[in-house]
Amino acid sequence: MSTDPHAWLVSLEGVPSGFTAARDGIDVVLRDRGLRRTSPELTAESLLRGAHASAVLEGSTSTLAEVRAGTGDEIAMVAVRLATELLSLMPVLRRQPLQALARMHTVAARGVLPDEMLGRPRDEEAALKLRAVAELITAPTEAPALAVAAVVHAYLVAAAPFGSHNGIVARAAERLLLAVKGVDEKSLMVPEAAHLALRAEYESNLRGWSHGGQAGRHAWLIYTTEAYAAAAEASPLVREAE
């Protein structure tokens, strides 16, 4: 019996080829459009755009201009606060994913939930689900890194292990995994913006993951191959190169 928790997805029709095509497109943007010329400012811009998009998906009504000016609503400021700290958690996510996820929630929910709930699962069942997600992050696998990020994102949304901000944490974890696993080490893609641009499909396929069985999970993975291609095109690198 395989010990690879992601082995099931490799045999799904269209999934391996879809992720291969998405990775090829990402590599074109990140490398052929000037990875050698990237700067911390481009990474910061990508993180800001991602924070804004994630906040809107969570219910924020702030515009990108308002977020850029520091005048966004509470949800937007939460997303920006997490984005500011996110890349410092790369080594933690590699070694201690539970600690990284707890820190993400603590940063996001500070001032919203009581201190004793920050970074802590809602209950024992949620704690078990959170440990299972952590194992998905660190388990050796033959699955594409993009697929692992997609699966972890969906599991976190479905499990909703924390008392608040689960969507923001899930999208932040997805972005961080793309960096940790070498897909986008400088975090120049904007997956959150892709999910926002494809919002109807994003939300529908997340529901499918939670309630649609194997077919729903298959559909989510196919959706994410499209979303990751769009995430690369949403990078500030694209505008820089044009």
Rank of each mutant, 00 (worst) to 15 (best):
A149G: 15
R81M: 03
S54Y: 02
V56N: 04
L47D: 07
A154T: 03
A143Y: 06
H153A: 04
A126H: 10
L89E: 05
L130I: 07
R94H: 14
L86D: 05
E85Q: 12
T61Q: 14
H52L: 08
M77C: 13
Q99N: 14
A158G: 11
A145D: 11
T84I: 08
A132T: 04
H165F: 09
E85P: 00
S60I: 00
A79F: 03
T106I: 00
M117R: 15
S88V: 09
A102D: 01
A100G: 11
A69Y: 05
S62A: 15
V133D: 03
A147C: 05
A132G: 08
A149H: 05
E125G: 15
T141K: 10
M104T: 01
A109Y: 00
L128C: 07
R103Q: 14
H52V: 05
G163P: 08
E116V: 11
V56Q: 03
A159I: 00
A69K: 12
A126E: 06
R131A: 15
R120C: 07
M104D: 00
V133Y: 04
R95F: 09
G111D: 06
R122K: 13
V80S: 13
A108Q: 05
L130E: 07
A132S: 12
A126R: 12
G50D: 13
L87S: 10
A159Q: 01
H153N: 14
D123M: 01
V67F: 03
E74H: 12
R68H: 06
A55C: 03
R120E: 14
T61W: 05
I137Y: 00
R81H: 04
T84Y: 04
A79R: 11
A134R: 05
M117E: 14
I75D: 00
S88M: 05
P144F: 05
T84L: 06
L48N: 06
L118T: 06
M90Y: 03
M77Y: 00
L101Q: 02
D115S: 12
P114H: 13
L87T: 13
V112E: 10
L89K: 06
A132N: 10
V78Y: 01
R103H: 14
A83V: 04
G59R: 11
S62W: 10
V133I: 14
S46W: 01
